[in-house]
Design a protein around this nucleic acid. Structure first.
Lengths: 191, 191
DNA sequence: GAAAGTCTAGACCGAATAGTCTACAAAAAT
DNA sequence: ATTTTTGTAGACTATTCGGTCTAGACTTTC
């Protein structure tokens, strides 16, 4: 055969499924191509390396996640930003498992392609900007302590509250939202 | 030479150092023996497998961590149990990095020796018992919702609050205790 | 319809790594 | 002193995995 039997998305989708089922470590080039019935050459015709594929998978996932978060912050609604994590986890269980159960480092340890590296930097910077903005608006300034408060309330606590359910492949119950909300008010309400 | 140049602890110590510096994935039998200047045969004379060594490392570390936690619960002091995590992280930075920055699964994926498996089960059970006791004493009963509240307040939040500092190899500041304490009161104070 | 470009196909290579095996040296037991 | 036990020593094996390379099939272009 001589014409496209697969496209980039096929490979990424196979990788996503594998990462979700058996963790990022199980995403090998062989396992991807095997699952797809594609030859190895096809893979390397499209992706520079395994890291390139995994990096792309990670970056697109984190961007999808971050979108709603940024929107909530830009709307000035911190609580909505904090509750975005459980909401998103309910809608996109697989992606949430990918993102919140593993660190970026588990995806690609070696040499990311330059384009991806920049993409990740941009993403991290946008996230940081959100935290800064929230810290300023809520605590008056954005020193280290205020930034930690913001991180705690917007990111650390929501992720921690959701993780156990993701591990057991259960949707986070409404109780999670209650815990996040109470924590939010306890920290933001009286700094 | 014919007599013990090394003992079990030497290998475990080398493994701990490697895991702390470069993550559990970098703990290979070769890297351990190389660091120690020991031959491979010496390793396998003492440990059944790489997983056996890593399992032992993980189990001893988690037991050391858990000790203070259990004591606080048995003294009926939930807040002390919640604050045990940052306190322990300050005193045992390396061990804390090991334990709180990686999951048990990162240590040994394959076949744990039976003795270790039982040890881990016992440990998990003791931990679960603590959560149960706290849930009953604090929320009246120990249903799923009360257990989640207990886990959130005693484990998930403290670990989440501390993680960022461990990643950057900084000791968690007092602010962390404040955040944990406020969260604790917000959840426990008015269930 | 010939040439060029695109994609499939999979054998092959080199590095890393868990684990084995045999030889042997020193201490302990007899 | 001799035998047995214990542990050192490291070459060797098997496997897994990322990545390369060459051959060829199909499409597009001219």
């Amino acid at each position: 055969m001589g014409r496209a039997l697969f496209d980039n998305a096929d490979f990424i989708e196979a990788a996503r499924a594998l990462a979700c089922e058996r963790g990022p470590g199980a995403v090998t080039v062989d396992s991807i191509t095997q699952r797809l019935g594609a030859p190895k050459g096809s893979f390397y015709h499209r992706f520079a390396s395994r890291d390139a594929l995994l990096g792309e998978l990670w970056l697109t996932t984190v961007l999808a996640y971050q979108q709603g978060f940024v929107a909530a912050i830009e709307a000035g609604d911190g609580l909505a930003a904090a509750l975005h994590t459980p909401a998103w986890a309910r809608q996109h269980t697989d992606d949430a498992r990918l993102l919140l159960l593993h660190s970026r480092h588990d995806f690609a340890q070696g040499d990311w392609p330059a384009a991806l590296k920049r993409g990740v930097q941009d993403q991290a910077q946008r996230f940081e900007a959100c935290l800064n903005r929230f810290a300023r608006e809520t605590f008056g300034r954005a020193g280290p302590a205020q930034l930690k408060r913001a991180t705690f309330v917007l990111a650390e606590v929501p992720v921690a509250a959701v993780r156990g359910y993701l591990q057991r492949r259960e949707p986070p119950p409404k109780l999670v939202d209650e815990l996040i909300t109470k924590t939010y008010h306890a920290i933001v309400g009286d700094q």
